[in-house]
Design a protein around this nucleic acid. Structure first.
Lengths: 265, 265
DNA sequence: TCGAAATGTGAGAAAACGAACATTGTGTTC
DNA sequence: GAACACAATGTTCGTTTTCTCACATTTCGA
């Protein structure tokens, strides 16, 4: 088991995560950033900026050049910035590969908040011909890069923890929407259902599920057989689980018995 | 005296002009070039490339950075959002300075879509203690950098044109919201009111205005006395105009007569 | 209190810069 | 055709900037 920390955590010392967000913002606004200028602007050592840029480069958010950084190739079109595709991005990438194999390119695609589903949406976006619905700000920002894609944003209170809009407003908005396929995320999965850490996002997640004809759970194997604080729903609402590798035999058997099939890349 | 060589002439030695054209082509394709890579590609000394870049920079074709060159500010992807943010950012910055002087840091701040209001929101964000409401995806994305800030996102159909969520859903959501001060943008302003280019965003803009107790128009002087295709509202809904510099005497007099005061940085 | 993560500091290495000077084509002049 | 002027290019070298690495320090949570 491991902490499923994905977001809203690492502001340990000064505010590294915030600084990196601001760096990306500057980058997308100006097209380039320089180490020296950033260190002056944020009043930190150049070494710190270099470490930030190095990390962001590893995540594919930018490309290093001598003296600073620039937009990565193929990401010229300025959108918002793509969100923190933080840790184990390899796993998320594999999940995305699995998702790509089964999600229809037309129709209404719902995208839940979270980094995994975001990566999936990024991969799918160029091929989609239908409509995307999401309450995740990073997902919406990414979709700006595809001018021909129809997108509906679900509004509400911005929950910094998962960078999505939630609450009564979001639930109300979802009542008028219908989703063909929903890409759902979760903090933990076991035979009894899906779990998240916070109850704040619960109602919104359930509203999305209720609006969806089919629910595909997109999650890497590290969430397997863990359990979270708040139960979202049972496995009966999920049709398939797209994941990066085989799960344990026991949990696999239970989940399969519940009528849910696995999709691997 | 020197030849005023414009094109097709000075291929004295190797083909300097042709090489410079190719450099520009590469630059526009990739968004950046590096001295080292170019010297390898053209099989010339790095010094030569530096001289080329220096000349092109003098002509305003590109902008030098350590190690290479990039597209000059305001000449990025055409019609792109970031370029609009960048273009006359000095003016927008001055507008933001004016806005900062008058917007209360507490209470509910509404932020309209558009680059000018976005810049204002970026400047204000660190100091805000109240709540921000916006339908603009970039604005919402920026607010993610401030975890302690309460933010409400207005959902709806994503309009790529202004990167904001609009339509009936947005209007409905705004009916339940109240805004103390609204930072409004416009494509044009004259004595008769505010204008935008597209009617798609009209209803949403009006809904924001209706929800607001006070409306501050944030716009640079270039919008003065122009007129757009679609009229949003009259000046009676606007209390103040935050702008970068003095407007023309005639338009200033008319607007002041309508009871609207100007705020300069 | 302890430990991990974040950040700062300093020195040596590497990269890039810019100026001065040498070299090579090209075209002109006699 | 030889001499010349000149622009383009290459080369060298000292200077400046940036990078990287190792280690010290700070901060905050457990």
């Amino acid at each position: 088991m491991q902490s499923v920390s994905t977001l809203g955590e690492s502001l340990r010392h000064g505010g590294a995560e915030r600084r990196r967000i601001l760096i990306l913002e500057t980058l997308f606004r100006d097209g380039h950033v320089s180490v020296h200028a950033l260190s002056t602007e944020f009043a930190v050592a150049e070494m710190t900026v270099r470490r930030d840029l190095k990390q962001l480069a590893d995540e594919g958010e930018l490309e290093l050049v001598h003296g600073g950084a620039r937009l990565p190739a193929g990401r010229q079109s300025p959108a918002g910035f793509s969100s923190r595709t933080q840790s184990n991005s390899r796993a998320k990438q594999r999940v995305a590969d699995a998702v790509k194999a089964i999600v229809p390119r037309s129709g209404v695609l719902g995208v839940d908040a979270g980094t995994t589903t975001h990566v999936c949406a990024l991969e799918l976006a160029p091929e989609l011909t239908g409509c995307v619905i999401s309450h995740s700000v990073p997902v919406l920002a990414s979709m700006l890069a595809w001018p021909d894609l129809r997108v509906i944003g679900v509004g509400g209170d911005l929950l910094h923890e998962n960078q999505a809009m939630v609450g009564p407003g979001a639930v109300a908005a979802l009542k008028d929407l219908r989703i063909d396929v929903l890409l759902l995320g979760a903090s933990a999965v076991n035979a009894d259902g899906l779990y998240v850490h916070s109850s704040v996002e619960l109602a919104t997640k359930r509203a999305m599920i209720d609006a969806a004809s089919e629910v595909i759970l997109a999650t890497d194997a590290s969430k397997a057989d863990a359990s979270g604080a708040v139960r979202v729903c049972g496995l009966d609402r999920v049709s398939r689980i797209a994941t990066d590798r085989e799960w344990g035999a026991e949990i696999t058997e239970k989940i399969t018995a519940a009528g849910v099939s696995f999709v691997l890349p």
